[in-house]
Write a protein that binds this DNA or RNA. Structure first.
Lengths: 150, 150
DNA sequence: TTATAATTGAGAATGAGTCTCAATTACAAT
DNA sequence: ATTGTAATTGAGACTCATTCTCAATTATAA
């Protein structure tokens, strides 16, 4: 018998505080988001949940994703022409992304220097920063090689 | 009699190179984008063009915006739940944004240190960066005051 | 002037995300 | 356990930005 995973505790506590319920649909959706390592989109998640035999409608997937964002277990990475990309933030330190134009792969990176520099910049502007997103677009190693060959 | 503005030269040259035409619709759309100083969205642009008496359909506005992005006269700033935000990049040095959660206002800023740091980070990862976007979300001075009052 | 190919606009189509509402379910109080 | 209340669910309608279609128009080169 395993303990209730900490994410479930977090989510159900969050819901209870707001007079909301931790249903099996929400539980199924939470599980799937937490099992995913990389980036994901609502539709993909919905299909996976369906495949896994759990029942949860598209509407519930969207609704639950919003809740998970609000309680900080996942976060929006970016919006693309194909939809919104999310990632698990629980047990996943803050980081930024390099995004390959060639193959779509993403590199996660973190720089303390960068974080501090941003704080400085906010101070200079009298701005009270709370979150940020830095996305560097370009070519990953593989795609650099491909380009050279052509 | 004034000279043909440089942006028009850039755009028409760009089009000619690709065997495309510099039509009056495209010209009207170009003019409006270049007259705008801040951020804008396609729909807003379309309405303004309509008001100004020029004729250009929504479809042409969207099509021309794509072209202007490709030739580098404007660029995408971000995608929101309400649509895509663009800004003029011609005669507008590279910069990043601080975005106020309270009132939606945007502060533009530029930091050489930041640019160099990003180059370093790319080098470290073997990534060939071409563009980037940094968005810091938080509260502008005004909204900080408002929060305190409450 | 003419042939050719690019462009246009109106409206249809697409697709992500949200909303509606009747049916279901969780929970608290009895 | 039963019941009352309010939250939740899912199917599909709806919204809204954006793209597509295609017949009519227009620019350009010969």
């Amino acid at each position: 018998m395993r303990e209730k995973p900490i994410q479930k505790q977090v989510f159900s506590r969050f819901l209870k505080e707001r007079g909301q319920r931790f249903t099996k649909e929400r539980s199924a959706i939470l599980e799937k988001t937490m099992s995913r390592n990389g980036h994901f989109e609502p539709e993909t998640l919905y299909i996976e949940i369906r495949k896994a035999g759990a029942k949860a409608s598209r509407a519930s997937v969207y609704r639950t994703i919003s809740l998970l964002c609000e309680c900080g277990l996942i976060e929006q990475v970016r919006k693309t022409e194909h939809g919104t990309v999310y990632e698990r933030s629980f047990g996943h330190e803050h980081h930024d992304h390099m995004l390959c134009i060639g193959c779509g792969s993403a590199i996660e990176f973190y720089s303390d220097k960068l974080e501090r520099l941003q704080e400085d910049l906010c101070r200079q502007q009298g701005f009270q920063g709370t979150t940020h997103t830095l996305e560097i677009r370009g070519y990953c190693r593989k795609c650099q090689k491909k380009k050279k060959q052509t």
